[in-house]
Amino acid sequence: MPAPINPFKKALADGEIQFGCWLGIPTGFTTELMGHAGFDWLVIDGEHGPQDYRATLNALQVLAGTPAHPVVRVPVGDTVIIKQMLDLGAQTLLVPMVESAAQAEQLVRDVTYPPHGVRGVGFALSRAAGFSTIADYGKTADAQICLLVQVENRAGLAALDEILAVEGVHGVFIGPSDLAADMGHMSNPEHPDVQAAIMDAITRIRAAGKAPGILSTRDPMTNAALEAGAQFVAVGADVLLLGTAARGLAAKWQATRG
């Protein structure tokens, strides 16, 4: 029995657009709700969200029963953390702050079994391998892993062409907020200079045969990214959805008190 097919990776390879959302609330209840909301993919955020090892495991278990594909964002591109997330069952990883081809090459080794990589072998304890019940997991897993790297500062943009040349990187996600801050436009990713850099990067990523990705909660920016060629596009976050709806509802009824 081979490793399960990664539908998200296949969709990107087929040129399909995949719409997603961020998960920052570390509870199975809301994760399950989001999994049935209609998104193609959901990011379990271990960088800025409070998703630790156990919370990520819970989210992966919950999302396995929904149509949404889980994407795990690790806090940093560390070999040990990546090994743990893959053994938990993550097939798609999002790695922040990649600034060089050397970093990207190491990440490819991290997600690949020997002899071509350094991923540790431990099938008996691995949820990904069905606890040794997926007989051919070790021989077939590499082909189903999807590695997405984040380019989100000027150093990353300067090295973008070299990063794109790394075999085994399947998509490049442009981080608008960090890029805006690094360009001197904190909290203003819609600044014309930032937008120009983002759209140019998306175009270059697509031209290189990789999948471009982005997070955008504003329709004009989202539409511009799609027109530039973005394929995996996150359009919101659970905390933003809840917070916006809750504040709006509270304000509506507080205003009636006169």
Rank of each mutant, 00 (worst) to 15 (best):
V72A: 03
V74M: 07
G77R: 06
V80P: 08
M85V: 13
M85L: 09
D87F: 08
G89N: 02
Q91M: 15
L94N: 06
L94C: 07
P96D: 01
V98F: 00
E99I: 02
A102Y: 00
Q103W: 05
A104N: 04
E105P: 11
E105M: 12
R109I: 00
D110P: 00
P115R: 11
P115I: 12
P115D: 12
G117F: 01
V118L: 12
V118C: 06
R119E: 05
R119Q: 07
G120C: 02
G120N: 07
G120K: 00
G122L: 01
G122Y: 05
F123K: 04
L125R: 08
S126T: 01
R127W: 06
R127T: 10
R127S: 08
A128Q: 05
A129R: 06
G130S: 08
F131Y: 15
Y137L: 10
G138E: 07
K139A: 15
K139P: 02
T140V: 09
T140R: 06
Q144N: 03
L147F: 08
L148D: 11
L148W: 12
Q150K: 10
E152H: 07
N153C: 06
A155N: 09
A155H: 01
L157A: 11
L157G: 10
A158E: 12
L160N: 04
L160A: 08
L160V: 02
D161Q: 05
E162K: 14
I163H: 02
L164E: 10
L164R: 08
A165V: 03
V166L: 06
V166E: 10
E167L: 04
E167M: 06
V169H: 07
V169Q: 11
V169G: 11
V169W: 07
V172Y: 06
I174T: 03
I174N: 04
G175N: 03
S177T: 13
S177A: 15
S177G: 14
L179A: 04
A180R: 03
A180Q: 03
A181G: 06
D182R: 01
G184N: 13
H185T: 11
M186N: 10
N188D: 13
P189V: 02
E190M: 06
E190R: 10
H191D: 15
